[in-house]
């Protein structure tokens, strides 16, 4: 029960972040877009993007202060998969124009057909990958 409530509460914080950024700054809270944009040549969007990324890094620290423990991060994939996965996530989110936050949280909220197609595709690809890794005898 508690995992469902904390998942929902965490989602509400994420949605609040996206709504604030939209209403005040007029921008989408897509993490891959913000990260890639922060690495582009200096523009008017550079400062808030870097500020967002700094805030993102402090999020787990705020959690630590509130709950007395770091969030659990249990990652036991072997190194070659970690590197391959990172490359695919970085390249794929730029080619597809968004990730779980930009297409997922923000795109689904405004019922964008492109985002609905992207979310259906990456959820299906991710589930199929997990299926092959865990049950496909790889």
């Amino acid at each position: 029960m508690i995992v469902y409530l904390s998942a929902l509460a965490g989602g509400i914080f994420i949605g609040t972040s996206a709504a604030l950024l939209l209403v005040l700054n007029g921008r989408i809270a897509g993490i891959s877009g913000i990260a890639a944009g922060a690495m582009r040549p200096l523009s008017r969007d550079t400062p808030w993007r870097w500020a967002f990324l700094v805030g993102l890094l402090f999020g787990p620290l705020l959690y630590r202060l509130a709950y007395g423990a770091w969030p659990v991060v249990h990652l036991d994939a072997p190194w070659p998969l970690i590197v391959l996965g990172g490359l695919l996530v970085g390249y794929g989110t730029r080619l597809g124009g968004g990730c779980t936050s930009g297409h997922g949280v923000c795109g689904l909220a405004r019922l964008s057909p492109r985002s609905i197609a992207a979310v259906a595709t990456f959820m299906a690809a991710a589930a199929a990958t997990v299926f092959l890794v865990r049950h496909g005898g790889w």
């Binding site: 604030l20 805030g55 993102l56 999020g59 705020l62």
Partner: peptide, 8 residues
Amino acid sequence: AGLLFGFG
């Protein structure tokens, strides 16, 4: 927004 997102 980043802080709220990271905390969430």
